[in-house]
Amino acid sequence: METAVFIVCAAIVLAGALGVVLARNPVHAALSLVGTLFGMAVLFLNLEAHFLAAVQIIVYAGAIVVLFLFVIGLAVAFLVTSDVGLPAEAVLRLDITDQYSNLRQIAAVLFTDYVYAFEATAALLTISVVGAVVMSRRVARADQAQQAAEDD
């Protein structure tokens, strides 16, 4: 069973990765990336990393790829309707009452040995969000004209 799951998912992962590299249209590349990420999530389940499989789908397919699609829609200036759902609860086995569940094991290490690194990631995410807002903010029009003049 594990072998069959591995072979199918490895094929999906590699096909998706080739799709990302070979696709001419960036939207097709982003959708191939979703295929790769879903295959990878199933491989994580195969390796008994249940929590990370859920995080993989929620963070990557649910947030990062949707962000890619939004930026493609903004940059290439055509409408992208994306309806990437979160079928995470279908595969999840995160029983928090089980003392030996994957989630509890990770939490026990993450909030003791790695607690300072964990706090640092909060700062990292805050800074990156603030940076993204600052960079993508529209500059004042006079300023823009001046910069355009400098470019020419």
Partner: peptide
Amino acid sequence: QVSVFFVLVVAAAEVVVGLAI
């Protein structure tokens, strides 16, 4: 698995900043 958690966080931050650029 904890390392992968941190890689995911850094990847998310990287994508946010990169796409803003």
